[in-house]
Amino acid sequence: MDGLSVKIGSLILKNPVMVASGTFGYGEEYAQLIDLNELGAIITKSITVKPRLGNPQPRLWETQGGLLNSIGLQNVGLATFIDEKLPYLQKYDTRVIVSIAGESVSEYCQLAQALKKETFDALEVNISCPNVQHTKKGLFAQDKDLSYEIIRKAVRFSHKPVIAKLTPNITDISIIAKACEKAGAEAIAVVNTFNAMAVDLKTKKPVFKNIVAGLCGPAIKPQALYKVYEVKKAVKIPVIGMGGIMNLNDALEFIITGASAIAVGVGNFVDPKIPLNIINGLRHYLKDNKLAQVKHLIGSMTN
């Protein structure tokens, strides 16, 4: 053992480095570039009941240190995912976390139930995509009762460890985190993208048809880190930290703040080797600092 193993609820990972939903497709897209067996876990693109076309172009806009996206959950849909995408991922020696996104509470139930008998390791319940319509009032993850209800039902129907993925676009994220913990989530993924926008100066129009898009990348890292801090203070279940992690130091900051695992998102686009570099970096960090286990670093921040 190399001391990298961590526990996320009942889920044991060989190392704390995951790839974030939406940035890694269904894994197969990256298999030619990196060895997927090295990863702690792969979180799939969020799956919806029916295939989703996604939003019109443009969907991406690079900003200073960040990337705006408005993909709109384009995915193959539940049936094709189960028939074609999941079997591919099962061949690898890594944890497979299936991300789901519903348009209503009952769709989350339907997704969780349909996936119940499939082989994978955990369910990420994405209640925080900023690029699709949730309710008239906003995102599911901006409403503690809806968050509770969706997570509660996902836990009941899926029989898999449930991870709730939260939005940072809320005054007090700890309220939602607590609701998800109470509903039976085994971990909280912190965070989805930040609401943001851009204007095309040639046309004086918003770049994105929805106006709002999600900002990710290094630009949001300090904000994402603070959300991890807030959630960690509020709940006892593990936190998975993500938001602009590009290297070992970024990952360490999240872990020391309290993340039991981290996920690389837009970093995969910049350099697909970043997750593996972080894993190797952690190995060296433990050795250089004479630490036996990475888990001893989790939440080791002092003030």
């Binding site: 890694f24 497709g25 897209e29 030619q32 996604g54 172009q57 993909i71």
Partner: peptide, 17 residues
Amino acid sequence: EEHMGCGVGACMGCVVK
């Protein structure tokens, strides 16, 4: 041509109808 994210078909960022 399109603005691209991953370049390998994972992110669904660079689409055409």
